[in-house]
């Protein structure tokens, strides 16, 4: 593919002896939303966490194979650089409870000990919150603790925090599974906006969500990448029997 930003080559991941991601080859095009779906325990979250090297933080976890970001293997870079380039949003909103909204957005810089002047910080905070569609709601309470926000707002704060670092790729691990329907739809709308600037990979166990938000969809089953195609094709004309079963709700 011409504009591939991320590519995995024969990628395996393990928890101790447990082989949880098996020989995955996938190419992610730039400025797309790619949904990764599959029944729980299929390795989709583990695969996502391998992309920015969060998987290896768990004791006994290991990986094999290549994960290429712009043709550079992330496993040959220092994790700090990888995570600067690949941001992540988690299943449960996790703003830093000891920091204000303002400081949460700027956390990637501030906690790094970078000396910045106030004006620059203000710009980054405003731009990031604008992009995360949260600015209007919080601009008057920037110095309140982030944990006072609603769940959906907290999740958007986490998105703002991640994009403040100007990553190229943004990983979202079931970003709406802890949220109510209204917050969910606001996040889904936001994803469409974000893909103009970033490449998004969204793990979801919700098929409708995958169909709604993504350009391409990957289906994982028992650690393998079963099928990967344009979302429209995937849902109308799945090639693999297992994909078909999953889409028609025959197992989950």
């Amino acid at each position: 593919m011409e504009n591939t930003i991320l590519k995995s080559v024969d990628f395996d991941a393990y928890f101790g002896e447990n082989h949880v991601v098996k020989k995955v080859n996938i190419e992610i095009p730039k400025n797309n939303v790619v949904a990764v779906m599959g029944p729980s325990g299929c390795g989709k979250t583990t695969f996502l966490r391998c992309i920015n090297r969060m998987h290896e933080l768990i004791e006994g976890a290991s990986t094999k194979g290549k994960m290429l970001l712009n043709n550079e293997d992330v496993y040959e870079m220092h994790p700090i650089f990888v995570r600067h380039k690949i941001g992540m949003v988690f299943q449960r909103p996790n703003p830093f409870p000891n920091l204000s909204i303002y400081d949460n957005v700027i956390a990637g810089y501030k906690l790094n000990g970078m000396k910045m002047n106030k004006a620059d910080k203000d710009v980054i905070v405003e731009q990031s919150l604008q992009k995360a569609a949260l600015w209007n709601e919080v601009k008057d309470s920037l110095h309140k603790k982030g944990t006072f926000l609603s769940g959906g707002q907290q999740q958007r704060l986490c998105i703002a925090r991640a994009i403040a670092m100007e990553p190229e790729v943004l990983l979202l691990d079931e970003p709406t599974s802890a949220l109510d329907p209204i917050s969910t739809s606001s996040i889904e709308v936001l994803l469409q906006e974000l893909k103009k600037n970033y490449t998004l990979i969204v793990v979801t166990h919700n098929m409708q969500q995958a169909a709604r938000v993504s350009d391409k969809t990957a289906f994982f089953y028992l650690g393998e990448l079963i099928e990967y195609d344009d979302t429209k094709n995937m849902f109308t004309n799945p090639q693999d029997k297992r994909t078909q079963n999953y889409i028609t709700g025959r197992f989950s």
């Binding site: 220092h78 700090i80 650089f81 600067h84 810089y109 790094n112 000990g113 970078m114 910045m116 620059d120 710009v123 980054i124 731009q127 403040a164 670092m165 100007e166």
Partner: peptide, 21 residues
């Protein structure tokens, strides 16, 4: 705007990696 800080961020990171060890 943010790109200016990107370079600082990278320089900073080398220092941080040593500190991490």
């Amino acid at each position: 705007m943010m790109n200016v800080w990107k370079n600082v961020k990278i320089k900073r990171a080398f220092h941080q990696i040593r500190m991490e060890k």
